[in-house]
Design a protein around this nucleic acid. Structure first.
Ligand SMILES: [Zn+2]
Ligand SMILES: [Zn+2]
Length: 721
DNA sequence: AGCACGCCGACT
DNA sequence: GTCGGCGTGCTC
């Protein structure tokens, strides 16, 4: 039998393809990139192993070129890629692509180049301001460099040419960036007893796999625990992976890590340029960097000396990828730590129910930081019954009065409403017509106090009609979003500085950070916002939080709605009453008797979680059952439905112990012009579900119409929409 | 995913 | 008679 190289290629194939080794290099180690022929093009693949050929010898073609001297992926990462491809039923090449920065996927050399830093020479600094009038690129760069050195990797191609031109004039130069030392005067706060106990518990098993759930409210000092453990791991020569949610990777967070680790920490997130990503990747691979601080995709970074994994805000839904291979970074981080034999710390004020369940079963160790660090007191939660309380425009008088009192006392107040825009519905008062999106089966949201209608699912925008297109009646914006609440509060609290914080106000990079910093600095006295407010900054003057609509998640179709709602309420509540001031949280609801809400308000998140888990158990929902979702979408409604129906039929006889639910239209039946259907699988055992999925995935590809629809499997789906 | 092949409608 | 539509199949 011919010995071949197993090569993963960028094509939607479940496994690797066989290639003959190139002449003179029979033994290429796994993890090395190769250029191989695929059909009639040449692609970059990655060797994942060796073995006897699985196809007849005359189909075998040779590897054309070997691109690396050393593997770009070590055994641990290759295993992670293979596991994820299998578990999430995603093509191997697609998962592999996640683990390689774009330049490497295109075949660029992986050899580490020390990151270069452009800076001005003395002559450049002395250059007259009016210089380079006829070279705007160079002039722009000159001005940029006056503010400080700029990483070469951060320059666009045009700026790179401009930099070379400036160098030719003797005004600028590129030099290797020095690795900054940690801040020598860094303040290491004394650990509270609970923090000390948590550090000790993880340290006691620092050299083997264990999952520690670190539960602690906002302000309890989880980050300090991470930092201490990371310092110890780095001191032993290890590397640390720290995952944070998308919106938490702020300059402030990075500064905190830089103070401890200097230039040995690298940030990794979607906002980086390709070159910066490659530089971070290379620094970790070479061990020059010791700490990777990043969002979801950082779970794929090379960490040959990985000694500790931290997943902060482990319950955060942004860890689940919602396209392509739908992996969960927290779950993969745990898998990676097990493979590596190192501890994982999952931190949260509001752990995911799955995580709490694992802790209760003894799979995870449960560490608690009960008290707040310093003298801060936890805020008190109170329900406000919207059915009884007199109200103005959806805000109870009692809430407004409480806000007024706090403002008068010089405090800040926050209104939380997880709904952007002015009004969620535009309604005809005469006939009941509702403005809907042409391309989606959803209502359009009124923005700009009625100036524009927007679809939050496909981005469509249009002017609202002057009158009802059906009957000519008058149109009315019904319901409230943050924009409208902003307007109401501006009218009610005239002259009080107010800011609104939502995705519409914080579109550009850094805008959110700036808005939050303004609040922390005390400028705005009233804050209105969405879940963007749930994380990060400490608002020392904030003493009152109004949750305007607690019912939103409580009564939604998604079984995770209550969990998500409780997490948001607790996190937003965490903004209040840090420092010595006690905080108060008023929660508006139409269902104050709701048992889960009662539990949350009276006994806190842990009691809520216990009750919610009991409901999940009774309903046979995760974590007491395992789900997988087949999502199908197509412009042609019948094609989507037909494929989903055929898929459901194909699943029926495929395995024991798996329920097939559906086909059914997705909760949002049409989105961006595509009709959406789904089939849900449920099993008591993960193994039974996986067995069925493996067989099903193969059949699905061969189903008629598989090429006419878009379809994909979502294992452990977070959102059913 | 690409990229070919192939088999039917309307065009120089 | 050909140009091109996109359904189907394959890539070691
Ligand atoms: Zn009407
Ligand atoms: Zn839409």
């Amino acid at each position: 039998m011919t010995q071949v190289l197993k090569v993963a290629v960028p094509a939607p194939l479940a496994g690797a393809l066989d290639y003959l080794p190139p002449r003179g290099a029979p033994d290429i180690p796994a993890g090395v990139r190769v250029r191989v022929p695929l059909g009639r093009r040449a692609v970059v693949g990655v060797v994942v192993g060796r073995g006897p050929a699985a196809v007849v010898p005359d189909r075998l073609r040779p590897v054309r070129a070997v691109l690396d001297e050393r593997p770009v992926l070590d055994g641990g990462l290759l295993d992670l890629v293979a596991f994820a491809a299998g578990y999430y039923h995603a093509p191997l090449g697609e998962v592999l692509a996640l683990a390689l920065p774009a330049p490497l996927r295109k075949g660029a050399p992986a050899q580490p180049r020390r990151p270069l830093l452009w800076r001005l020479t003395a002559a450049g600094r002395a250059a007259p301001a009016a210089a380079l009038a006829r070279a705007p690129r160079q002039r722009g760069l000159l001005e940029r460099l006056r503010a400080g050195p700029v990483a070469a990797a951060a320059l666009s191609a045009e700026d790179r040419r401009a930099a070379a031109a400036l160098a030719a004039r003797g005004w600028a130069e590129a030099a290797p960036a020095p690795v900054a030392p940690p801040d020598p005067g860094v303040h290491r706060p004394a650990l509270t007893p609970a923090q000390g106990a948590a550090v000790a518990a993880v340290r006691a098993a620092a050299d083997r796999f264990a999952v520690h759930l670190l539960e602690g409210v906002t302000g309890s000092g989880k980050t300090e625990v991470y930092l201490r453990l990371a310092e110890e791991a780095v001191a032993r020569g290890g590397q640390v992976l720290v995952l944070v949610p998308e919106i938490a990777l702020t300059p402030q967070t990075l500064r905190r890590f830089r103070a401890r680790f200097g230039g040995r920490v690298v940030a990794y997130h979607s906002g980086l340029a390709e070159g910066e990503r490659l530089a971070a990747w290379a620094a970790l691979r070479e061990g020059e960097a010791a700490v990777a601080l990043g969002t979801r995709s950082a779970v794929w970074l090379p960490l040959p000396r990985l000694a500790l994994v931290v997943v902060d805000e482990e319950h955060d839904p942004s860890y689940k990828q919602q396209e392509g291979p739908r992996y969960h970074a927290r779950d993969l981080a745990v898998w990676r730590a097990r493979r590596q034999g190192c501890p994982v710390v999952l931190g949260s004020a509001t752990p995911a129910l799955e995580t709490l369940h694992n802790a209760r079963r003894g799979r995870f160790r449960h560490l608690r930081l009960a008290e707040r660090a310093g003298e801060a007191v936890l805020p008190r939660l109170e329900l406000v019954d919207l059915r009884r309380e007199p109200q103005a425009q959806g805000i109870a008088r009692r809430v407004l009065a409480a806000a007024e009192a706090e403002l008068a006392a010089g405090r800040q107040v926050l209104f939380f409403l997880n709904r952007r825009g002015y009004a969620p519905t535009l309604l005809c008062t005469a006939c009941g017509w509702i403005a809907g999106c042409d391309r989606c089966s959803v209502r359009l949201t009124v923005h700009g106090a009625g100036a524009v209608l927007r679809c939050h699912h496909c981005g469509a925008r249009r002017r609202p009609p002057p009158a009802c297109p059906a009957c000519g009646g008058a149109l009315l914006g019904v319901g409230r979003g943050t924009e409208r609440v902003e307007a109401l509060l501006r009218a009610r609290f005239e002259g009080v500085p107010l800011t609104r914080i939502d995705r519409d106000r914080a579109r550009r990079r850094g805008a959110l950070e700036r808005l939050l910093a303004e609040v922390a600095a005390g400028g705005p006295r009233i804050v209105v916002g969405t879940q963007l407010l749930a994380k990060g900054h400490h608002f020392p003057d904030l003493t009152l939080v109004g949750v305007l609509n607690a019912d939103q998640g409580l009564f939604g179709a998604d079984f995770r709605g209550p969990e998500r709602a409780a997490q948001l309420i607790v996190q937003v509540a965490g903004r209040a009453g840090r420092g010595r001031l006690p905080g108060r949280v008023l929660i508006q609801t139409h269902a104050p008797e709701h048992p889960l809400l009662q539990r949350l308000v009276r006994e806190g998140y842990a009691a809520f979680a216990a009750a919610a888990l009991a409901e999940r158990a009774a309903a046979r929902l995760p974590p007491f059952a395992h789900l997988a979702l087949l999502r199908v979408e197509a412009v042609d409604a019948a094609a989507a439905e037909g494929f989903a129906a055929a898929a459901a039929k194909a699943a029926a006889g495929l395995g024991e112990g798996v329920e097939v639910l559906g086909p059914a239209p997705a909760p949002i039946e049409r989105r961006a012009g595509r009709h959406r259907w789904q089939v849900l699988l449920r099993a008591a055992r993960r193994s039974a579900l996986q067995r069925l999925l493996a067989r099903w995935a193969v059949r699905l590809e061969g189903l008629p119409g598989a090429r006419r629809v878009r379809w994909g499997l979502d294992v452990d789906p977070l959102e059913m929409a």
